[in-house]
Design a protein around this nucleic acid. Structure first.
Ligand SMILES: [Mn+2]
Ligand SMILES: [Mn+2]
Ligand SMILES: [Zn+2]
Ligand SMILES: [Zn+2]
Lengths: 142, 142
DNA sequence: AATGAGAATGAGAATTAATCTCAATACCAA
DNA sequence: TTGGTATTGAGATTAATTCTCATTCTCATT
């Protein structure tokens, strides 16, 4: 059990919110792996163990996880929003295969530093980078 | 009237599709300005002049405009897909203000060349770049 | 341990962007 | 002009996300 529990707890307290059982379950399931996830997949995974957590609560908890800095909205695929950890992960960019859905994650500060330079020139304060590309992965090229 | 008409016409012919009145209206409205657009805004704009173009036809025409290389899917904002011209525009990245919605467009090949390098290393064929950041613009910083 | 006020929940309804269906119409080569 | 095909508008449908609300949980205070 990693520190994400402390982070989340601290956030909830700071906002006068309560650490409930469904929120614990959702948090722990989200951090059970390092994979990207979407609501549907998360719901199925949770439901195997806990028949009493609703979709509504998952949808309500995700903004809290984002606000607390644990996850972020990552990408959109098949008309679904996808999320990924920020806590415990350094920033990275994505190469997304449009054929098989595979996501290649690459750490690289170079592109970010270019964006930082451009943002400074325009007096723009960056909150979140969005860097990547879509195309075809090596496997799908045959 | 720019060359987008020729491009679109040529594409339609090559696919055995027909250049219809609604398609002309949609194309011309899309290229009446250089702004990003979404289906709702486009529909309203078209409807002021032409009461007989349906939302369904707009939704059906957008993939054709994309396929013909005239526009591309750009960004997602307020739960709506947004599009922008590719024809007549060089590639650029976006700084999106989360407060006022303002979009700053910047031409810069630097970030792309870094992505190209990384993609080559992973034997990944890029079809479309996605480079930008979200944050707060200079006006909204007060 | 019991209380109570406010926060959180599950179930299902509501919203809404995007897609689909289908009968009627427009297009265009011949 | 005609005929075969593509296209259309209207409305139904889908599906992700959000909302409503009556009931249940949390937790600081007793
Ligand atoms: Mn990732
Ligand atoms: Mn743009
Ligand atoms: Zn692939
Ligand atoms: Zn702004």
């Amino acid at each position: 059990m990693g520190n994400e529990n402390f982070v989340f707890d601290k956030y909830l307290i700071s906002k006068g919110l309560k650490l409930t059982k469904p929120r614990k379950i959702i948090l722990n399931t989200v951090f059970a792996t390092h994979e990207h996830f979407n609501v549907d997949g998360l719901y199925d995974k949770i439901r195997k163990k806990h028949k009493d957590v609703s979709r509504a609560t998952i949808y309500r908890t995700i903004p809290l996880l984002i606000e607390s800095g644990l996850i972020k909205q990552s990408l959109r695929c098949l008309a679904k929003d996808h999320y990924e950890h920020t806590y415990g992960h350094s920033r990275h960019l994505h190469l997304i295969c449009e054929k098989c859905g595979k996501i290649i994650e690459i750490e690289s500060k170079e592109a970010e530093s270019i964006l930082n330079k451009l943002a400074k020139k325009h007096d723009f304060k960056i909150r979140e980078f969005n860097i990547g590309a879509k195309g075809i992965c090596n496997n799908c090229k045959k």
